[in-house]
């Protein structure tokens, strides 16, 4: 009986997600909700690699930054049409995935985590120093967009609406990706990659595809970030910020679209409101992460599923 609750949720996931964020908007203010939405897209991109394929990246801010800088540079040098700029960001996401992916996806575990981090560090350096002439170095870049048709991105509501639309699109895409044979393949790679090769699949190719999809969606979230803030600085891709998306993935529950959304919203809520009350933010994050690792590995979504489907929560521990 309670299983059917989950079934219904799955079936109407898209309108439900939309409704949830529409309800959040008046509570949190529109701009902040937009922030939440964009972060959720980033978490989804991350979760495709971490939750589904089992590859933990410690450098995903880079791919977000690639999208953000692509938009800013495109808007400044080519055209201020926001849609073309977003296309440029997506293309850059694909390009960075194609460039780094073949090296990165050959590794797993700790190596995968740190090689992403190393590239993230290089990207940070490029934005801050090497390309400072174009990126504005530490000051970053501000962007202005043309109004296209009735879509004026100076208007908060436009950005909100567009971001929400984008999120729905990404959720739809993610659900298709993860419920396809490809989705099963990713989960199999997570569990035992060698065995998948003996099912006749060239795993390298599919890992690369997943990586490129992830960098592209991350770049898309970066593009939206700059629509929302109208500026980008190297601090957007600071390597120490990677822990944010890891935290979100864990707290929501890795390896599920709903988990990623729940995690994105939870992390944003905590990081937006808690520092007002808690002085020592990093310490809080650290302790919370330890608790998640040791006591709450299933995350919120796993917890809810276990509760609803009536399987013992006790079974966990």
């Amino acid at each position: 009986m309670s299983q059917s609750v989950l079934k219904t949720l799955e079936k109407f996931s898209l309108p439900l997600v939309a409704a949830a964020f529409l309800l959040l908007a008046p509570i949190l203010t529109v701009q902040r909700t937009t922030d939440f939405i964009i972060f959720c897209i980033f978490v989804l991109a991350y979760d495709l690699l971490y939750g589904y394929m089992g590859r933990l990246s410690f450098g995903h801010m880079l791919y977000l930054g690639v999208g953000a800088y692509a938009v800013a540079l495109f808007a400044e040098h080519v055209s201020a049409n926001p849609f073309f700029a977003i296309l440029a960001a997506l293309a850059s996401g694909v390009a960075v995935g194609l460039l780094l992916g073949p090296i990165i996806v050959r590794t797993t575990g700790a190596c995968f985590a740190l090689i992403n981090l190393a590239f993230n560090q290089v990207g940070f350096f490029l934005a801050l120093t090497a390309f400072a002439k174009w990126t504005g170095g530490e000051d970053g870049m501000a962007t202005f967009f043309d109004t296209v048709w009735i879509l004026n991105f100076d208007n908060r509501y436009t950005v909100f609406g567009f971001s929400l639309f984008s999120l729905i699109l990404v959720v739809f895409l993610m659900r298709r990706l993860t419920m396809s044979p490809f989705g099963i393949l990713l989960r199999m790679i997570k569990e035992n990659e060698t065995r998948v090769q003996f099912l006749g699949y060239n795993t390298h190719r599919y890992k690369l595809l997943a990586f490129i999809l992830s960098t592209t969606i991350a770049a898309f979230s970066g593009a939206l970030t700059i629509l929302n803030y109208t500026y980008v600085t190297p601090s957007f891709i600071d390597t120490t910020r990677n822990v944010e998306v890891i935290f979100a993935s864990l707290i929501g529950g890795a390896g599920s679209v709903f988990g990623a959304l729940l995690g994105g919203v939870s992390y944003m809520a905590i990081s937006n409101y808690l520092p007002n009350y808690v002085q020592r933010w990093e310490m809080f994050l650290g302790i919370a992460l330890l608790l998640l690792v040791f006591k709450f590995q299933t995350g919120l979504w796993g917890f809810i599923v276990a509760r609803v489907s009536g399987f013992g929560v006790e079974k966990d521990r």
Binding site: L56, G109, V243, L285, G286, L290
Partner: peptide, 11 residues
């Protein structure tokens, strides 16, 4: 394990 050691570093 990686995440946990990172958490220790943060603290």
């Amino acid at each position: 394990a990686i995440i946990a050691t990172y958490a220790v570093l943060l603290i």
